[in-house]
Design a protein around this nucleic acid. Structure first.
Lengths: 145, 145
DNA sequence: CATTTTCATTTTACTAATCAAGTGATGACT
DNA sequence: AGTCATCACTTGATTAGTAAAATGAAAATG
């Protein structure tokens, strides 16, 4: 007989939430013509630009190959530019990319915040943040073994 | 100036944990020759078989098209069988699929559990489970609008 | 009894991710 | 100088996901 542990149930809830909130995010961002994955990467670039692809991959927790393809798409759309300097490519937003982030950032933040605010009190949110941070940091350490 | 809310920080932590724990899961399951996504689907089938593709898609929180392809692969590998009955296809594990789940389930459960146990106390886990359940249920309601 | 509706599943076109092998230029040995 | 290693990035093969259009067979309608 199958018996689940508390740990595995937590795992399942988190996986479901991520999946479903991703669907909602993509649906919400559709009106701005970008996907949730693109928003995340543009947001990282906006924060850390100019940044190399290598560093960006780490910030966005995506593989080298993944960021390469992602940037190709974003470059085609005209949101970012890659400046080759020696062997490194420095990534930054174009003015179109800056405008897009200016247009979208606040709304996406409000969108995410409201979903959390609707189901949890301020106190609960603080607790959840603390616990998730513990969990995530510990997983992060395991990755860098 | 960019200012993040508690809600958006929670969102970020959850997304990171999911992504990283998925990498770990895939890495762990590699020795058994299956992926984390395949394990999840096989696990659902094992629990609810026989089950239609439609219901399975809901259980596994995957789109109709997604489950169709996934099952094609699992069928090719010989883990599942599809029995056409009227217009419905009933999915169940083959004996090879049953064996695989018997081999993997306990280990994957232990793997997931240990990651949570290593970073959180029993009490913290209960709290986290309660909060994540609230959050996830609320998101689920938004999806079915 | 022919036609339309319904419905489960499949397919198409796309985004996105991984790992691993391939490029191509810089720089460091011998 | 010639070879070799390194490094940042790209590419190929595969898995996985979505939305939306297409299939195909049964049921319902007129």
């Amino acid at each position: 007989m199958r018996k689940n542990t508390l740990g595995s149930l937590i795992w399942l809830r988190i996986a479901r939430f991520t999946h479903q909130s991703n669907l909602l995010s993509n649906d919400f961002l559709k009106q701005y013509g970008i996907t949730a994955a693109q928003f995340d990467v543009l947001n990282q670039i906006s924060t850390y630009q100019p940044i190399t692809q290598n560093q960006l991959a780490i910030k966005a927790t995506v593989s080298e190959g993944g960021i390469s393809r992602m940037l190709t798409r974003l470059e085609q759309e005209g949101y970012i530019q890659r400046k080759q300097d020696w062997k490194t490519k420095w990534i930054s937003l174009t003015s179109k990319g800056e405008d897009k982030m200016l247009e979208v950032f606040e709304h996406q933040l409000t969108f995410q915040t409201s979903i959390v605010n609707e189901s949890l009190t301020e106190e609960e949110q603080k607790t959840l943040y603390t616990l998730m941070t513990k969990l995530q940091k510990s997983t992060e350490n395991k990755i860098e073994n």
